[in-house]
Computed example of a mutant assay.
Amino acid sequence: MTSPPPGGPPQRPARLTPVRRSTMKDIARQAGVSESAVSFALNGRPGVSEATRERVRRVAEELGWQASTAARSLSGEGTATVGLVLARPARALGMESFFLQLVAGIQQVLAQRQLGLLFQVVEDLPAECATYRRWWAEHRVDGVLLVDPRTEDPRLDLLDSLAMPTVVIGGRPGHQGSAPTVAHLWVDDSAAMALVVDYLYRLGHRRIAHVAGLPELAHTQRRIHSLRTEADRLGLPGAHSLTTDYSEAEGAAATRRLLDGPQPPTAIVYDSDVLAAAGAAVATERSLTVGRGLSVVAWEDSVLCRMAQPPLTALARDAVALGRTAAEQLTGLLDTGTPGLVQFEAPRLIVRESTSAAPPPGG
């Protein structure tokens, strides 16, 4: 048995006094304003002057104040979390880089605001709607980012009935409806398709086809309509679209159908990089030289487009910036309660070796 040290039994170490967290009451006392003014200032809401807002934020920073997610939820102020649901075929979604970049941009903004992202992938639209109902019932999110707007979209009426602040990425009031809690981030797919058709026409292509994505998506329908409109304007009666589920298999199958037709196209526009790569592989199987025998254009430039042989001409937009813009729009909607319409910059066409002048008739 170990003997106690001289002078008596060992002393217990003194307990550390926990550091007290600063509260809104502390900030109000030091800034000389009411607690409600502190709440307005820290949450970006109207009701206080800019001078007061700046003073409150400066005091909060000096005191090391941080919003408590649990306290916000219990007080009914919110969950400090926003939601994103993707209803896409799992086999197709796993190959798309666009959504990864979109989420990266969203996270950049949410991290600055110390907001979380609740992300879920589901099989279909009913499962997506069920997710929103569950999140609302469980107070899981303060708002949602909605992707892949449909031509007939039940999600908007549902989210409106739940009074759920929402930003529709790729949506526009009047096409997908409007509601007091719904904001829209508009991307002009029609103008982008017109740009591609005009470019191919100037190269001499008169048989232009389009391998599209899911037919129920609003942006798919806008691209199809734009192709038909431009074809009518330019006198291209053979221009048409085939829809797919965005998978490599359906992209390849659609390309085979087009190339096996009585008048195969000399140029094909694909709605994603994966579809375009699959189509280029089919062309190679048929001993067609991509860029000479068949011109290929991809929507959504990516590493896949740049590494293909030959590299693929593509429409490019900054998907990370699109995600940031959507998240900024949603946080603004949560702060002010005022929805709006933001138009994102138009895609630009990056010309590479997969497009060239149309082959001569019979060539």
Rank of each mutant, 00 (worst) to 15 (best):
Q30A: 13
A31T: 07
G32A: 11
G32T: 09
V33W: 08
V33Y: 04
V33H: 02
V33Q: 02
V33F: 02
E35G: 01
S36R: 11
S36W: 03
A37S: 15
S39N: 07
F40I: 00
A41N: 05
N43M: 07
N43E: 07
G44N: 13
G47P: 02
V48Y: 02
A51P: 00
A51E: 13
A51R: 07
E54N: 06
E54F: 02
V56P: 01
V56H: 08
R57F: 06
R58A: 15
V59A: 09
E61G: 15
E62L: 10
L63T: 09
Q66V: 15
S68H: 08
T69E: 12
R72P: 00
S73Y: 00
S73W: 06
L74Y: 11
S75N: 14
G76M: 05
G76S: 08
E77G: 13
G78H: 10
G78N: 03
G78D: 08
A80S: 14
T81N: 14
T81L: 11
V82L: 11
G83K: 06
L84I: 12
L86W: 01
L86E: 07
P89S: 08
P89F: 12
A92C: 04
L93S: 09
L93V: 03
G94L: 12
M95T: 14
E96H: 12
E96D: 15
E96K: 05
S97I: 03
S97Y: 02
S97R: 04
S97V: 10
F99L: 07
F99E: 01
L100S: 11
L100V: 15
Q101H: 10
L102M: 12
L102P: 01
L102A: 00
V103S: 07
Q108K: 14
V109W: 06
A111S: 14
A111F: 08
Q112I: 03
R113S: 14
Q114N: 15
L115Y: 15
L115Q: 15
G116D: 14
G116P: 10
L117P: 10
V122M: 11
E123V: 12
L125P: 00
A127W: 06
E128K: 08
E128W: 03
C129R: 14
C129F: 02
T131A: 14
A137T: 08
A137H: 06
H139Q: 15
R140M: 09
V141F: 02
L145S: 03
V147Y: 02
D148L: 08
P149I: 07
P149R: 02
